[in-house]
């Protein structure tokens, strides 16, 4: 007991030293996040209510940026629609990936090779993917026109990326190609975590295969599917590279995404204030969609466990 009281000041000093140490260890990371996450988010929100450019002093203009965006800006609505279409199409890719994952997951010989090949396109540089697909869609040298024309499906070459109808689906197809392997890997991890005895029990009970899939696989896979959907939503942000290289938003604004429009408004027209307002909308969209996806998957998964 006497030693404890004698040690007390030393212990005190050790604790302060510990906190100092923790602070030093955390500081660099926190500084990065403060500079590039928190501060920008706040600044961005502030900027969206201002009229500002690098040459002009900031002035509060209230909701004017938002008014312009929502009421007068057709391009914004185009970009918003395209972004939503982009996100809305990701379930197709997830379904495809689920099919592939189911095929690869079973005791198929050479499954590892198939998996590698399907996954091979994911770690590629997106700019390069954009250039490759731009070339595949090319009117003269492109693979698709070549196949379609030589099989006699079409007489005239299709200008895929220059057509208002085809450009967006084409960009989405390229995005699918890149991200499919990633969805597959997430779903495979999910599939492998499903306990095998559930299937065996179901088989013994004579449950048919499609019912096993609907009753066991799908519900237990929900967290993985949720993850895929979140990745799909985030991809609508990161697909900037792809769109920039393949069409740069064109023709017209047929493939404009919010993120490409933000880039154009901010760094093309130097309208930082307006771009900030666009960013706020995009961020809110992301948050809302993620929350909805979370609710959908979380709620259902929870009910199953109960």
């Amino acid at each position: 007991m006497t030693t404890a009281s004698a040690r007390s000041p030393w212990y005190q000093r050790k604790q302060t030293r510990d906190i100092a140490l923790v602070g030093c260890f955390l500081l660099p990371s926190l500084a990065v996040f403060f500079l590039y996450r928190i501060l920008p988010l706040g600044w961005n929100a502030m900027l969206s209510f201002q009229s500002w450019s690098p040459l002009k002093a900031a002035k509060w203009i209230g909701l004017e940026n938002y008014e312009e965006m929502l009421l007068d800006d057709d391009v914004f609505w185009d970009a918003l629609t395209n972004t939503l279409i982009f996100i809305g199409c990701s379930p197709i890719a997830i379904a495809l990936a689920l099919g592939i994952a189911l095929l690869v997951n079973s005791d198929l010989k050479g499954a590892a090779i198939y998996r590698t090949i399907v996954f091979l396109s994911y770690p590629l540089m997106t700019v390069a993917v954009g250039i490759i697909w731009r070339w595949l869609y090319d009117v003269r040298g492109g693979f698709f026109n070549y196949v379609l024309r030589s099989t006699g499906a079409i007489d005239e070459p299709v200008k895929f990326l220059q057509s208002f109808d085809w450009a967006l689906p084409c960009v989405i197809a390229a995005e699918f190609w890149q991200v499919l392997g990633f969805y597959m890997i997430i779903l495979l991890t999910g599939l492998q975590s499903i306990p095998q005895h559930l299937y065996e029990a179901a088989r013994v009970d004579g449950v048919p295969a499609h019912a096993r899939f609907l009753r066991i696989t799908l519900p237990l896979l929900r967290p993985s599917i949720f993850l895929c959907i979140v990745v799909g939503i985030l991809n609508s942000f990161t697909s900037f590279d792809l769109v920039y290289v393949m069409t740069n938003g064109g023709p017209g604004h047929a493939t404009e995404l919010l993120i490409t429009y933000i880039y154009k408004a901010g760094f093309g027209q130097t309208r930082f204030d307006y771009a900030a307002a666009l960013t706020v909308v995009q961020f809110l969209l992301l948050v809302v969609l993620t929350v909805i996806a979370n609710k959908l998957s979380g709620g259902n998964a929870g009910s199953l466990e109960r």
Binding site: I38, P40, L41, L47, F237, F283
Partner: peptide, 20 residues
């Protein structure tokens, strides 16, 4: 704080990030 920062995609901060 870190968990909520994780929700902020970097692409949503490009304008101020450039200014900073």
């Amino acid at each position: 704080l870190l968990l909520s920062c994780m929700l902020i995609p970097f692409q949503a901060t490009i304008i101020p990030a450039y200014l900073i």
